Simulated scan of single mutants.
Amino acid sequence: MSKIGEKIVKIFLNLLSVVVIALAIFGAWSLYQMFHGPEAELVTNPGKRLFGTTEKRIVTKAEVETKIYEIGELSTYSGEYNIKKTVDESRYIFDDIKIPGTKNTISLECTGKVKIGYNMSDIEVSVNDSTIHVKIPKGNVMSNYLIWDSIKSSEKNSIFNPINFEQYRKLINEIEEEGLKEVEAKGIYTRADENFKSIIKVFLAEFKDYDIEFTFAYDK
């Protein structure tokens, strides 16, 4: 092949390369405009969804209830109380006259703990286009007990009226009742509700396209 022919072939190949590159750039730009340009349109039909678009997951009430109810019971807050209580007991005649020398005394000082929780089957759920509504029931006292290592006791016995187990049981019950009132006055139910919200949000985190709204099934 002559030198002139070689030059013509090189020129032709160079022009062809430029045309190919130009077509590639034009094609890429057209695709970009199709999916990202001002006229791009979100397709929500899963059968016709275009590459690069996203769909909102549709969440049902049954899905949310299943997620919540599988928890069973949930303890969300515990409050402590410290009570000191002393009781005396004497024997009587004619119901109102104390018999001298029959007085015994028990004194207890101890720390107790109250746990508040929820039965998840009591929770009401509803779902609309963008929000999961959760109605919170009133928290239940799941446990109320004394921490035995904390108990300090003293007693004064009487040989005519020995202290018996029933007196201790009655005193412990009274302490637990007073302790419950103490932690209730400090807002144990409100704190349990706030922790409940935080925990439920974690359990429902997979439904990220939905807001979670809480209401109460009781008067606060």
Rank of each mutant, 00 (worst) to 15 (best):
N161E: 09
I83R: 02
S107Y: 05
P100F: 14
N140W: 00
P137D: 04
N173T: 03
Q167T: 09
T86Q: 13
R169G: 05
K98M: 06
S126P: 06
E80I: 07
I132K: 06
Y118H: 00
I106Y: 05
I172F: 04
N161G: 10
G117R: 00
V127F: 08
G101M: 09
I106D: 03
D88Y: 14
M120R: 02
D96K: 12
I116D: 00
N164H: 12
E109H: 08
S126R: 07
E89K: 15
T105I: 15
N119A: 02
D88S: 14
E109Y: 03
I163A: 09
K138Q: 14
N119G: 02
V114W: 01
V87M: 09
N128R: 06
D149I: 09
E89H: 14
L146I: 15
K152A: 14
G101Y: 06
T86G: 04
E166Q: 13
I116P: 00
S153C: 07
H133Y: 15
K115P: 00
T86E: 09
N128Q: 12
N157T: 14
F94P: 07
L146E: 06
K98T: 11
S121H: 00
F94M: 14
T131A: 05
I97Q: 10
N161S: 13
K98W: 03
N82R: 07
V127G: 04
N119F: 01
T111C: 02
P100G: 06
S90E: 08
K152H: 11
N164A: 08
K85A: 08
V87R: 15
S121L: 01
I123V: 08
I172D: 02
Q167I: 03
T86A: 13
S90W: 03
L171E: 02
S150R: 13
F160A: 11
I93D: 03
L108I: 15
S126T: 13
S126N: 12
T102L: 11
K103T: 12
K85S: 08
I132R: 06
R91V: 05
I97P: 12
I136K: 01
L171N: 03
D95R: 07
S126W: 03
K84C: 05
V127L: 08
P162L: 08
F94A: 12
G79F: 00
I159T: 13
D129R: 07
K135M: 05
V114T: 04
E174Q: 11
T131R: 10
E109V: 04
S90N: 08
E166W: 08
D149P: 11
K138E: 08
S154W: 13
I132D: 02
S126Q: 05
V125Q: 04
P137T: 04
N104A: 13
I123L: 01
S90P: 06
V134Q: 02
Y118I: 00
F160T: 06
L108M: 07
S78N: 05
S143A: 11
N119K: 02
K113C: 01
E155T: 15
Y81C: 04
L146H: 11
F165D: 13
